[in-house]
């Protein structure tokens, strides 16, 4: 079968979503789905279009036992690997961050990029990681507003993509905290006073992949690839 034909791929994607693509043809298509972004995009388009057909049916509330079972299965919500919880790591990072030489990087952000006041030892930290590997280290002093992001293992997402950092306040939509550096670089910004309280109370931070220059809408538009908590030292 000629999987290079966009028209054929699109039709196969439609029948895959519909469920009428079966047996060996379905398995071959699933392999393709894992290998090719164009195939995934075709499937997503059909999922989005055909998904609306589900709305033709009258809603039926499932028994409350279903949610109870789901809630049990997602408990405990352990988001962080063991290295995250290591207090030694926090102390070491706190000390290192307070003396680190940082490179200022001007990015599109609601925050100013003036240098932080001297002697602003971090009182909040966060490690954004992938499995056992930390990708960025964030440190903030919420008294002075100085916040530093350092890329320890993060590399560029793609030639025309960037990583954007978001704060997830206790209520309300995510708030952009600017673009994250890559390739070993660091960036330090000054967090406005109003946002320091939000960060202190926040449920955490998230990283999404966005077009060059950052989200065009002010809200995450790409996949959320990492999440982390902000920990008070």
């Amino acid at each position: 079968m000629n999987y290079d034909s966009a028209r054929l791929v699109d039709l196969l994607a439609g029948e895959y979503v519909l469920g009428t693509l079966r047996g060996g043809a379905r398995r071959r298509f699933e392999r393709l789905l894992h290998q090719r972004p164009d195939v995934r995009s075709a499937v997503w388009r059909w999922e989005s279009s055909l998904g609306e057909l589900g709305l033709t049916l009258a809603p039926v509330s499932p028994p409350s036992a279903v949610w109870s079972a789901v809630a049990r299965r997602i408990e405990p919500a352990d988001l962080h690997p063991a290295w995250w919880r290591s207090i030694g790591l926090w102390r070491a990072w706190s000390l290192a961050a307070s003396t680190a030489l940082v490179v200022l990087l001007v990015v599109s952000s609601p925050f100013t990029t003036s240098p932080p006041p001297p002697d602003s030892a971090p009182d909040h930290v966060s490690v954004i990681g992938d499995g056992s590997e930390p990708l960025w280290l964030l440190s903030a002093n919420l008294e002075t507003g100085a916040i530093t992001a350092r890329a320890v293992n993060a590399v560029a997402a793609d030639v025309d993509k960037v990583f954007e950092l978001w704060m997830l306040p206790e209520s309300g939509p995510p708030i952009s905290m600017g673009l994250l550096p890559v390739g070993g670089e660091s960036v330090t910004r000054s967090l406005p006073a109003g946002l320091r309280a939000l960060l202190r109370q926040s449920k955490g931070i998230a990283v999404s992949i966005e077009p060059a220059g950052g989200s065009p809408t002010g809200a995450p538009t790409g996949p959320v690839v990492h999440t982390a908590r902000v920990v008070s030292l």
């Binding site: 997503w44 999922e47 989005s48 279009s49 055909l50 998904g51 609306e52 998230a206 959320v224």
Partner: peptide
């Protein structure tokens, strides 16, 4: 729950994604 961080706007409505 496990894949919620993989969702993005290109995938269409959240409800369509969950139905899929």
């Amino acid at each position: 729950w496990g894949q919620s961080r993989d969702y993005h706007a290109d995938r269409g409505l959240v409800l369509s994604w969950i139905i899929a």
